[in-house]
Amino acid sequence: MYRGGVGQFSYLLHRVTGVGILLFLLVHIADTALICLGPGYYNRIMALYAHPVFKLSEVALFAAVLFHALNGIRVFLVDFWERGTVYHKKLFYLEAIVFFVVMVPVAYKMVGSFVLGSLF
């Protein structure tokens, strides 16, 4: 294991979220393709997504897409903005702030009532 810094951490997260999104897309193509077999199969698989585990997974999926997109912008700036390599750490911290600012209300909107309802 190499003790890298912010860059290695963001690289790792970028890879993990990228593979996660790819896996989702493969599953999504498979479940959508079920419509070819008839509405019965399709509706049954869609009903599965109402399960709490899938509801939480949707939040994780949104988080993965959001991080991957924001980090993609950061990587682009590092490569093509003249001062990008100087500010790469600050760009990562800015990215983290934007991530949480967007993530908190979206997560609340997606599963807030479901999670709070089960707690109280």
Partner: peptide, 29 residues
Amino acid sequence: CRTVFNCAEACPRGIDVPKAIAEVKRALV
């Protein structure tokens, strides 16, 4: 190059390696 920046931290001569790489990328584009 995936802009990991381990190279910059590892260089014993203090070369700004990512900056050099970014300049080459920009020269290409």
